[in-house]
């Protein structure tokens, strides 16, 4: 039966695509509801802000040390890797440009997102998943406190503010990392390295990174919370949700990164 052999793989692919789209639809719906709750919730507004501020501390301020170290090191690494190639062309003076552009446009937002996925995306899934298993979500619901408004909205608001902030910080630390090589391995002083960086960067380099970071924040919150709500019965399900939240978030963040980078490239060579 030759027809079956064609139909079967197609149906497998179709099924996978359909599930993927349904998943994205679910995440989008969750985020939409969380946004709606930010404006129309029956919960006390002042307490919602308090929860959002608490989340901002945990998601944002708590991540500063680890993001600082990682992006500083990545700045050094980018300088070393760049120098390896630039030296052959006698263009070592371009090292500040190389580091500045690669960090602000790509590595700052991406590394920030990956650290936040590891710290917060996984925690969202574990927290909401555990609450599901222990009937705490049902308890909130029967008290007329909507779990999405109570749990997701503060995380979403905190994430939308903190992701760009963390990304700017990551950009700065990356450039500082690059300057270590610039000063020790190339003919820069700290001052000339910074002014070379400033000359190399256009505002749009930083803006595109920040736009990406906001979308990454949406993805991380949506996937983390969605996986939490989708947790089945039993504690091992919480582990599964957490793993799935991290893997799915990383995949989607890279995918979103690709799409946005392509869009920025096509529209005006930014």
């Amino acid at each position: 039966m030759p027809r079956l052999s064609v139909v079967e793989p197609l149906s497998v692919i179709g099924g996978a695509v359909e599930r993927g789209l349904a998943y994205l639809g679910g995440v989008a719906q969750l985020l939409g509801r969380a946004f709606a709750h930010a404006f129309t919730s029956s919960l006390k507004r002042s307490l919602s802000y308090q929860r959002a501020c608490h989340q901002a501390m945990v998601i944002g301020v708590g991540a500063v040390p680890v993001i600082s170290f990682i992006t500083f090191f990545i700045g050094v690494i980018m300088a070393l890797q760049g120098a390896y190639e630039l030296k052959r062309f006698g263009a070592l003076h371009l090292i500040a440009d190389t580091v500045a552009i690669s960090i602000t446009r790509e590595l700052g937002p991406l590394v920030t997102a990956i650290v936040v996925i590891g710290r917060s995306g996984s925690a969202f899934a574990a927290e909401i998943g555990t609450m599901k298993v222990t009937e705490e979500l049902d308890a909130l619901e029967t008290m007329a406190l909507h779990p999405i408004g109570f749990l997701v909205t503060p995380k979403l608001l905190a994430m939308l503010v903190m992701m760009p902030c963390l990304t700017i910080w990551a950009d700065l630390m990356g450039v500082l990392g690059g300057s270590v090589f610039g000063v020790t391995g190339a003919d820069y002083t700290f001052g000339t390295y910074l002014s070379a960086t400033r000359d190399a960067l256009y505002m749009r380099d930083i803006i595109t990174g920040l736009v990406k970071s906001i979308v990454f924040g949406l993805v991380i919150t949506g996937v983390g919370c969605q996986e939490g709500f989708a947790t089945g019965a039993g504690s091992e399900e919480v582990g599964r949700s957490t793993t799935s939240a991290v893997v799915t978030s990383i995949f989607l963040v890279v995918l979103v990164d690709l799409v946005f980078t392509a869009i920025f490239y096509v529209t005006g060579g930014a």
């Binding site: 555990t130 609450m131 222990t134 009937e135 705490e136 049902d138 308890a139 909130l140 619901e141 029967t142 008290m143 007329a144």
Partner: peptide, 16 residues
């Protein structure tokens, strides 16, 4: 309706 009812859950379901 939910503001006028109270449910005591089997395992407590207190917010941890």
């Amino acid at each position: 309706v939910r503001k006028k009812i109270g449910l005591s859950f089997q395992g407590g379901a207190l917010i941890g």
